[in-house]
């Protein structure tokens, strides 16, 4: 399926839930926050949150800033 991931189109063929997506990207779920179609997904619900063709996913974390 094709997702819009952090603003870029990206294909993903793993199990269709957020936990699999975050893990497949090499990210530590404890250090990021995820938005699916403009709704924040609580970390505890990643495995229970399905992803589907065309979903817009944002994955963010903290960086340095003033």
């Amino acid at each position: 399926m094709t997702l819009t991931l952090n603003g870029e189109p990206r294909s993903f063929d793993g199990p269709a839930h957020l936990q699999a997506l975050v893990t497949s990207l090499g990210l530590d779920p404890r250090k990021v926050a995820v938005e699916r179609n403009l709704e924040i997904v609580p970390r505890a619900l990643y495995a229970a949150t399905p992803i589907a063709e065309g979903d817009r996913i944002e994955i963010v974390h903290f960086i340095g800033g003033g």
């Binding site: 991931l5 952090n6 603003g7 870029e8 990206r10 990207l25 090499g26 990210l27 250090k31 990021v32 926050a33 944002e58 994955i59 963010v60 974390h61 903290f62 960086i63 340095g64 800033g65 003033g66």
Partner: peptide, 22 residues
Amino acid sequence: VTVALRRVNLSDPSQPMLADYV
């Protein structure tokens, strides 16, 4: 300390993270 929230760099998820230092 103030921190900013930004998109994760998906092309290089291994780059240093703020939380590992500060």
